[in-house]
């Protein structure tokens, strides 16, 4: 039984702001399904007594002191912006 339907792919694509063609949808549905089935193997392990992993390294409490360092120059910050105006980044109007 397939785990992923075309609907799921459309939903995820929408959340990721991706525009997919019908052909791509078919393709990704199949691929994602295969990936999930493969990963599903992990469910064969009994993890009841294993703590969920939040990080792969055994590190904790890594902090920095509350000190200000110099920020970027505004020109530098805006250098790669596709559009800018008056020191701001400029994007098509969004009102959610």
């Amino acid at each position: 039984m397939s785990k992923i339907t075309k609907k799921d792919v459309e939903y995820v694509a929408k959340l990721a702001r991706l525009k997919l063609s019908e052909k791509e949808k078919e393709k990704f549905t199949k691929q994602l399904d295969q990936i999930l089935k493969y990963v599903d193997k992990l469910n064969e392990l009994d993890t009841k007594k294993v703590k969920p992993t939040s990080h792969v390294l055994p590190l904790k409490n890594v902090f920095r002191e509350d000190k200000i360092k110099k920020s970027l120059e505004v020109e530098k910050t805006l250098e790669n912006a596709p559009e800018k105006a008056r020191g701001f980044f400029k994007v098509p109007k969004v009102i959610e």
Binding site: F88, K90, V91, P92, V94
Partner: peptide, 14 residues
């Protein structure tokens, strides 16, 4: 976000 400064655009201050 500033929506009113420039027509049809949104300006961003990060």
């Amino acid at each position: 976000l500033l929506h009113e400064e420039v027509k049809d655009s949104t300006l961003i201050d990060f």
